[in-house]
Simulated scan of single mutants.
Amino acid sequence: MLRGLYTAAAGMVTQQRRHDTATQNIANLNTTGYKQVDSVSHAFPDVLISAMSGGVTKPVGRLNTGVFAEQSVSQYLQGDLIESGKSADFALSTDLQVEDPDNAGTYLAFDGSGKYISPDGEVTYRPQAFFTVQDNEGNNLYTRNGSFSVGPTGEVLSAGGFSVLDSNGNPLRLTGPEDTLKVDGQGNLINNATGLPSGTRIGISVITRPQELVRDGNGVFHADDTEAAEIRYSNATDNLQVRQGYLENSNVDATQVTVDMNAAYRAYEANQKVIQFYDSSLQKAVNDVGRV
Rank of each mutant, 00 (worst) to 15 (best):
L81V: 10
V40F: 05
H19E: 10
G79H: 06
L5T: 15
G33F: 00
Y6I: 15
S39I: 10
G54A: 11
Y76K: 00
Q78E: 08
V13Y: 01
K58C: 06
D46F: 11
V37R: 00
Y34Q: 03
H42K: 07
M52G: 15
L2C: 03
G55D: 13
S53D: 14
K58L: 06
R18T: 01
T57W: 00
H19T: 10
L29I: 11
T14A: 10
G61D: 11
G79E: 02
N25Q: 00
G55C: 08
H42Y: 02
S41I: 10
Q15M: 10
D80Q: 11
N64W: 03
S39M: 08
A69E: 07
L77D: 03
R62K: 14
I82Y: 04
V60M: 08
D46K: 14
G33K: 05
Q75F: 08
A27N: 01
A22K: 01
S72L: 12
Q24A: 10
A51R: 05
G4N: 14
A43P: 02
P59Q: 03
R62G: 01
N25G: 07
I49E: 11
V67A: 12
K35R: 06
V13M: 04
R3K: 12
S72H: 09
L77M: 12
A27H: 01
Y34D: 09
A22R: 03
V60R: 02
Q75A: 07
L5K: 14
M12E: 08
T32K: 02
F44H: 09
E83G: 00
G54Y: 09
E70Y: 06
G61I: 15
N30S: 01
P59I: 13
I49Q: 12
Q16R: 12
H19P: 02
T21M: 11
A51D: 02
K58D: 07
S41Y: 05
A8T: 06
L2Q: 15
R62V: 13
G11I: 09
G54E: 13
R62A: 12
I82T: 04
V60K: 05
L29K: 03
Q24C: 08
V73A: 09
F68K: 10
I49V: 14
T65R: 02
S72W: 07
G55A: 04
S39E: 05
L5S: 13
